[in-house]
Design a binder for these strands. Structure first.
Lengths: 286, 286
DNA sequence: GTTCCGCATGAATCGATAG
DNA sequence: ACTATCGATTCATGCGGAA
């Protein structure tokens, strides 16, 4: 079967199929951002056939090859993943995957930490609760789009008092050029109430809705969509799951393309997005 | 030169030398915990000869082979490290090192995240500030010693003091987040007495003292020493630096062995520990 | 004794310029 | 082309002195 490659892709749709196959019919350089939380190794065994950790990179790489092709040169690929414990150890399949993705042509730009403020309870004799996940940032080129202002956070109010009176420190440091001099441009700080965030994200996991307890909460895709796209850009989630990325995209006035292989999840996300549309783009909580 | 291998090792000393050479004269299975923050690749070029990222594992593995030998079967090895940016990318030498340490015989039990609450400032067009480091846990066997109760946080006290000392930044940021904030969790804590921590550690870097500005603050080694050792156990830091691990060990009534190759750092830690002893084991800040 | 406020400084990174 | 140096950017924390 030969499917003609379209120049203009359809957006705001959920596609039922394997992302590798589906994306082969997509043109190059048509996606602004890929945000996804793929099935973790050995997890969701029923739905995805249970990829064994040892085979994870082998399973993933043909798909990421398509991601690399359909992503725009200025685009970004965010991979939310965390290795599990196998026989008392953290498995190295994620590390292996990072190394192989670089060999595939991706730039490994950054590793964000998603700190899960309310992680699952539990107790083990030789291990504490796991309250973080990796959000790996990959790019096609060094000059990718990034809109830092969109994710600024409220700043501590120390700046106000500092600005009341230009401190001697700033002047001295400026003059003496000790180390990495501070206080060069005090004027930049005037009227500033917001600060840039760091590469550690503090989001709580939300599980209020039973039917689709999200793999990641709305906050996570929203944060990355705000940071790496503008209005009307196209966001792809090749492992859509229950549709969280699509909801985040709609909330932020971006276009989405969702792909989901598993029929149950496909139907869930379909329903969720239908319901969402019926409600007229009301803000949706997870 | 042949040095006779002693059965009983000297403790509470700082040794000037390369840890690989020094440890070759140590017997097997004599150390309860190794906590260290080695020189990062390409950092401290003057002191350590500037290990290039590409050669990092090669440089490290002969040393870790000795660590593996001198560590007790129930012991733990904590490696604090973080890769830097090279040509716009995170380098993979740490990932490579983890994989190779496993091949060397170590079990990679856990990866703790040290969230640095006050990270270095700065602004770049394509990157946020780096506010976390890896604390990698390696073991010789699955049945290692772990004293979880030692790092439990009293719920009531913790909540109170946390609330009292809650920084303005935390308040402002948490208030701005509906549902995922601090207030939600407080109610849960009030009903409990003690809580186990997670694998995300929140410590600030302290550098108020100029003369011996520690690579990591006292909090980090203290936390791991409490978690993985008992009174009088032996803690080794093969890259002692300014001596922070030794100070932490003394504070907690553990024995220490510190090794430092660089003469300047060796002298600094010597002075620091001498001064500490003269003061009669008073609690020492950084 | 508290509380408040000013101050120093930190495992940084990027891009331009110079050798 | 490739490396080395330099300037610019910028936020949270704990300490110490002052109120």
């Amino acid at each position: 079967m030969t499917i003609k490659i379209k120049r203009k892709i359809d957006t705001n749709i959920v596609i039922h199929g394997d992302c590798e196959d589906v994306l082969k019919n997509y043109p190059n350089d048509c996606i602004d951002l890929i945000v996804t939380s793929p099935p973790y190794a050995d997890a969701r065994k029923n739905q995805y056939g249970g990829i064994h950790p040892n085979n994870y990179a082998k399973w993933f790489l043909p798909k990421s090859e398509q991601f690399l092709r359909v992503l725009k040169p200025t685009g970004t690929f965010i991979l939310n993943i965390k290795e599990r414990v196998l026989e008392g150890q953290r498995h190295t399949y994620v590390l292996d995957l990072i190394i192989k993705l670089r060999e595939q042509g991706w730039l490994w730009t950054e590793e964000f930490i998603w700190h899960k403020k309310n992680c699952y309870p539990g107790k083990w004799p030789n291990r504490f609760r796991d309250s973080w996940e990796r959000c790996l940032q990959f790019n096609k080129s060094k000059s990718f789009a990034m809109y830092q202002e969109a994710v600024m956070v409220p700043m501590g109010n120390w700046a106000e008092s500092r600005l009341k009176k230009l401190s001697e420190t700033d002047k001295v440091r400026d003059e003496s050029k000790v180390g990495s001099g501070f206080g060069k441009n005090i004027s930049n700080w005037l009227n500033r109430k917001m600060a840039y965030p760091t590469n550690v994200l503090h989001f709580a996991t939300e599980c209020s809705n039973k039917s689709h307890c999200a793999a990641f909460p709305l906050d996570v895709p929203e944060w990355f969509i705000k940071l790496f796209t503008k209005d009307n850009n196209v966001v792809l989630d090749p492992f859509l799951g229950s549709g969280t990325t699509a909801v985040a995209a709609i909330n932020l006035n971006r276009q989405y393309v969702g792909i989901e292989k598993n029929e149950d999840y496909y139907l869930i996300s379909q329903n969720r997005l239908d319901e969402f549309t019926r409600q007229g783009k009301l803000k949706w909580k997870t």
